[in-house]
Amino acid sequence: MKLLKKLLPSKALAFIALSVFGITAVNAQDAADDIANKLQNPLSSIIALPIQHNLGMGIPGMDGTTYTMSLQPIVAQEFEKFSIVHRGVMGLSYLPATTGLENNLNPQFGITDLNYSFFFAPKNVGKLAWGIGPSIDMPTATSDMLGTGKWSAGASLALVYQTNGWTFDMIFRQTVSFAGDQNRNDVNTFVGQTLIAKSLGKGWMINTFPTIVANWNAEKGQQWTVPVGGGISKLVFMGKLPVNLGVQYYNNVVKPDHVGQHELRFMTTFVFKK
């Protein structure tokens, strides 16, 4: 540094310092945008832990707001011509006491059922990426109100298209019960998630990612839950660890009688491999 001061005038040193700082800032922004876009793609080769906090409001027969903390780990394995993406969903839920029912229940708190899926995703398939694989639901819930009491299995499919900062993807899952508590209702459930996301730069993202559910065993008019809404997220760095922070709101425009009207989501995603 002393040698540089002798060889270069102070204005030149200041210019070099500002240039290096500017390049570093641009690289950090590019890295944030790249990771933020990967997080919108369910087939990305990443290892991450999304933690989702869901607040359910306006639920008939319940004295208050429901809460679920959902852990949704993602682990991708890369091979020469394909990748396998493992995805899990496990939750910890609180249900307030029921009111106005024939047999009111006390508040419930505990673990929900566990879902595990994986996608076999070929590489170099063009602009439309896809993945397919099995899905299984395990009756791990600690309360009848928090789970189905059934083992269920089926298939899952993911379709992804990304271009110019836009991401469009769909994830479908259909499971049917095959074992479990014989005194509980059979399961025949479809879950569909359609994402539309737009990168705003500097790690900012706006998106909509509603979870559409169909219970095929329910009575007519009580089968579908269809939310409408969206939110915003921001990719930041905690030291060298990328963390995506987001919030979303949804209104259930179609729903069974027992499902709440509103849902508020807070999301934190820790990215361990990008």
Score class of each variant (00 low, 15 high):
Phe190Ser: 04
Pro134Asn: 06
Asn164Glu: 15
Ala14Tyr: 10
Ser93Ile: 10
Tyr67Cys: 03
Lys234Cys: 03
Phe120Cys: 02
Gly231Cys: 04
Gly88Thr: 08
Ala97Thr: 09
Lys198Arg: 10
Phe190His: 03
Val254His: 00
Tyr67Val: 00
Gly231Phe: 05
Thr269Gly: 08
Ile136Asn: 04
Lys240Trp: 09
Ile51Asp: 09
Phe15Gly: 07
Thr65Asp: 11
Asp186Arg: 13
Thr163Ile: 12
Pro256Cys: 10
Ser135Thr: 15
Leu200Val: 07
Ile46Asn: 14
Tyr67Phe: 06
Ile47Leu: 09
Gln223Gly: 06
Asp181Pro: 11
Gly192Pro: 07
Phe15His: 10
Tyr116Gln: 01
Asn41Trp: 14
Lys2Met: 01
Thr142Asn: 14
Thr175Cys: 06
Gln222Pro: 03
Asn124Pro: 08
Ser135Trp: 05
Gly131Asn: 02
Met69Pro: 00
Lys220Arg: 07
Trp216His: 04
Leu241Arg: 11
Gly201Asp: 13
Val20Gly: 04
Leu92Ala: 14
Ala158Ser: 08
Phe172Thr: 00
Ala48Trp: 04
Met205Leu: 14
Met205Tyr: 05
Glu219Asn: 02
Asn103Asp: 10
Ile59Leu: 04
Gly58Leu: 13
Ile47Ser: 07
Gln162Leu: 10
Asp34Met: 13
His262Lys: 12
Gln248Asp: 06
Trp166Gly: 03
Thr99Pro: 04
Thr99Gly: 08
Asp34Phe: 12
Glu219Trp: 00
Leu4Ile: 05
Ala129Lys: 03
Thr167Asp: 07
Thr142Ser: 15
Gly180Tyr: 10
Ile206Val: 13
His258Glu: 08
Gly56Glu: 12
Ala218Tyr: 02
Gly246Lys: 08
Gln108Thr: 14
Phe120Ile: 00
Tyr67Arg: 04
Val176Trp: 09
Val228His: 03
Asn103Pro: 00
Asp137Met: 13
Asn244Cys: 08
Tyr94Lys: 13
Met205Ala: 05
Ser93Val: 11
Leu55Met: 12
Phe209Thr: 01
Phe190Ile: 03
Phe266Lys: 05
Lys2Asp: 01
Ile111Gly: 04
Met69Leu: 14
Lys255Tyr: 13
Gln52Asp: 13
Phe109Glu: 09
Val213Asn: 12
Met62Glu: 08
Ala129Trp: 00
Ser44Thr: 11
Val176Ala: 05
Ala36Arg: 13
Ala31Ile: 06
Val75Arg: 02
Tyr67Glu: 02
Ala158Arg: 03
Thr99Lys: 15
Ala129Thr: 03
Met170Ala: 02
Val85Met: 01
Lys273Leu: 10
Lys2Thr: 01
Gln223Pro: 05
Lys2Pro: 01
Lys150Pro: 06
Gly131Asp: 02
Lys150Cys: 07
Trp166Asn: 04
Lys240Met: 12
Lys123Asn: 11
Phe209Ile: 02
Ser70Arg: 14
Leu49Tyr: 13
Ile132Ala: 00
Ser233Gly: 06
Leu13Ala: 04
Ile206Asn: 03
Pro210Ile: 01
Ala97Trp: 10
Pro107Asn: 11
Leu241Ser: 07
Ala36Asp: 10
Arg184Trp: 11
Asp30Trp: 14
Gly147Ala: 13
Ser117Asp: 02
Pro73Ile: 10
Lys127Phe: 05
Leu7Ser: 10
Glu219Gln: 03
Val254Pro: 01
Ser199Phe: 11
Val259Pro: 07
Ile232Ser: 00
Gly149Ser: 05
Gly133Met: 04
Lys234His: 06
Gly201Pro: 09
Val75Ser: 03
Gly154His: 05
Leu39Trp: 12
Val191Asp: 01
Thr99Trp: 06
Thr268Phe: 09
